[in-house]
Design a protein around this nucleic acid. Structure first.
Length: 598
DNA sequence: GCGGGGGGCGCC
DNA sequence: AAAGGGCGCCCCCCGC
């Protein structure tokens, strides 16, 4: 059964349909919110939402947590992305109108949710921001759109396009991705509402211990002010350590010709100011990113409230809006504390990305290595002389596209021992360099190159296979897409920029096939776990970060939750990587404080 | 004065 | 030892 919910300023409207769209109950205003609860309890339908983030809160407020759903907007984004049409799916009502064959009336009084400054072919963060402009969406529109998407999903799943870098997509992969994306949207709404338990007093203690007392507005905290004075004394003239330009010029005046003031550059420099500068950077980071202002803005009633946006990243990872919920530094995790009588069950997937590589590439050797608990130990034993650090460096280099230095050398070993795995990411890189698109294991497509990229790379002609050796003399001078300092005008510069752009995209697509496939797995993990947690009293998913999650639960249910987390990970592995011997182990641990989890 | 872009750094 | 993928956020800087 399908239960379609729309809402406008007069409140929600609900209608029920059979799975093939035959009306069961006509659209009716929901006067009593308990109606949602009744429908869920009696029928357990698949709920259809234009946008889960907009509509599901209405149900939650009525106390109705649903089991299954379908998010039209998120699904449309996936489907359009596969057609190379990124950035079109963000306005959910337009999606519906497209499916219904009716035009969307533009309301000029309401700003377009996509900033006009973004080039139209630039796939950036398409906002999962709720569309501000309203089309007259009805439950019938929702069902029409749903059936249309079901048909397109089925078509995609059996066509020749259903392969990723030459590997057949398992049956129903795209359907699974859409279910997981919709399930993730339910999790995100619930998580956004409850927040991560956060003890403001502990956080404040961390701040005063590290920075000194909270300063008056416009003042630096005491420790930072002292370090700033130390820096000025060390140079012998006034320097503002908040200004990278000022700092760089100060080092240049002192005889150190540095390009940037990044910490790793400064660490190589023998100058009396370096120690204070590095300490200042550390403190400034805490002060500005997670200081008193952050606490006041994002923590209330003992919860850190950040808005979670599933699918907010092109790879399918989540993003956050406000609060930086996915960037909580370890230094403040001491403040994430379970409420009395509760624990935090913290679980992360160990070495997820290399395991994903083993699974998607079908590399038998790497799959064997991935069958164990510590992948890097096994990898080290099988070709790196037992050196775990080398093994890890080589693997990261392969997945991120390192082409120089130690990691590149170590990758040679990896290539010999695990040719299918290395070949897989290198094939993805070559496709990217050629302007093609790659996909995750469940079929999420990466964005096509921009028109600017195609002009730049297309016109200068590709040089075939790039030499993977170090021709770092040219590449090193360019940074962040800027023009190299010693660039000569003319054809040579264009060719160099074109090569650079091609390589950049190659690294992107190389990483995409791993990162996006890992996100596929994690979304399934999360969705399966959410369903099983509905039966555990008081269990709340309160945090999710790429390959790690936290469940807040009464202490007596901690063991049960840990088992469910492990079971969900196993289910995700079977669904996403059927037939693979690769394991995706997770390690739940019950703690009262997040900082104790590692 | 505002906003976009860049530098820098935290998370994965 | 060297500086690769994806983000969000803050500050500074600079151009409008």
């Amino acid at each position: 059964m399908l239960a379609a919910v729309t809402s406008d300023r007069d409140g929600p409207t609900l209608a029920r349909f059979t799975d093939d769209g035959t009306p069961l109950s006509p659209p009716a205003r929901v006067r009593d919110p308990a109606e949602f609860h009744r429908v869920e309890a009696e029928h357990r339908p698949r709920w259809l939402f234009d946008s889960t983030a907009e509509t599901y809160p209405l149900l939650l407020t009525a106390g109705a947590r649903v089991r299954r759903s379908h998010d039209i907007a998120l699904t449309e984004r996936i489907l359009l992305g596969r057609a190379g049409r990124f950035g079109e799916a963000c306005r959910a009502p337009a999606v519906l109108a497209r499916a219904a064959g009716t035009p969307v009336p533009d309301d000029p009084a309401v700003p377009d949710p996509v900033p006009a400054s973004r080039p139209p072919d630039q796939p950036g963060l398409f906002d999962s921001e709720p569309a501000r402009r309203r089309a007259p969406v009805t439950p019938d529109d929702l069902v029409t759109a749903y059936l249309d998407q079901q048909r397109r999903t089925a078509d995609a799943a059996c066509g020749p396009a259903a392969t990723t870098a030459g590997i057949a997509v398992p049956g129903g992969a795209l359907r699974l991705l859409i279910a997981a994306e919709s399930g993730s949207a339910l999790v995100a709404v619930e998580m956004t509402r409850r927040g991560l338990p956060w003890d403001a007093a502990i956080h404040q203690r961390i701040l005063t211990d590290t920075l000194g007392p909270r300063p008056a507005t416009g003042q630096r905290p005491a420790r930072m002010a002292q370090l700033a004075d130390d820096i000025t004394s060390a140079f012998g003239f006034p320097v503002n350590p908040d200004s990278a330009i000022d700092l760089r010029d100060a080092f240049r005046r002192s005889g150190f010709d540095i390009e940037t003031t990044r910490a790793w550059v400064l660490r190589e420099i023998d100058h009396p100011a370096v120690g204070s500068v590095l300490q200042y950077k550390d403190l400034a980071r805490l002060y500005t990113a997670n200081g008193w202002n952050w606490l006041a803005d994002w923590v209330s009633d003992g919860r850190l409230v950040s808005e979670y946006l599933p699918g907010g990243v092109v790879s399918g990872r989540w993003a956050t809006r406000g609060g930086g919920g996915l960037q909580l530094p370890k230094s403040v995790r001491r403040a994430a504390v379970a409420q009395p009588g509760h624990v935090l069950v913290v679980a992360d997937a160990a070495q997820l990305e290399p395991r994903v590589l083993a699974a998607v590439s079908g590399d038998a050797g790497l799959a064997a290595v991935s069958a164990g608990a510590d992948l890097y130990d096994a990898l080290a034993a099988g070709g790196f002389g037992g050196d775990r650090r080398h093994a890890k460096l080589a693997m990261l280099g392969a997945m991120y596209g390192q082409t120089t230095g130690e990691a590149a050398r170590l990758m040679a070993t990896l290539r010999v021992r695990y040719p299918a795995a290395v070949g897989y990411v290198e094939a993805a890189a070559r496709r990217g360099e050629a302007g093609a698109v790659v996909r995750s294991v469940l079929g999420r497509a990466c964005p096509p190159p921009s028109a600017r990229w195609r002009r730049l790379v297309g016109e200068s002609g590709s040089g075939g296979d790039e030499s993977s050796g170090g021709d770092g003399d040219l590449g090193a001078a360019t940074d962040g897409g800027g023009v190299p300092r010693d660039a000569r005008p003319g054809v040579g510069g264009t060719e160099r920029r074109a090569r650079q752009a091609a390589r950049d995209r190659g690294r992107f697509t190389r990483n995409f096939v791993i990162q996006a496939s890992a996100a596929d797995w994690a979304a399934v993990w999360l969705t399966v776990l959410r369903l099983s947690l509905l039966d555990v009293p008081g269990a709340e998913l309160v945090f999710f970060q790429h390959d790690e999650l936290i469940v807040h639960v009464p202490a007596e249910h901690a063991d049960r939750v840990a088992d469910l987390i492990v079971a969900a990970a196993d289910t995700a592995r079977e669904l996403v990587f059927p037939g693979s011997e690769v394991q995706t182990p997770v390690r739940p641990v019950a703690v009262s404080c997040y900082a104790d989890a590692k």
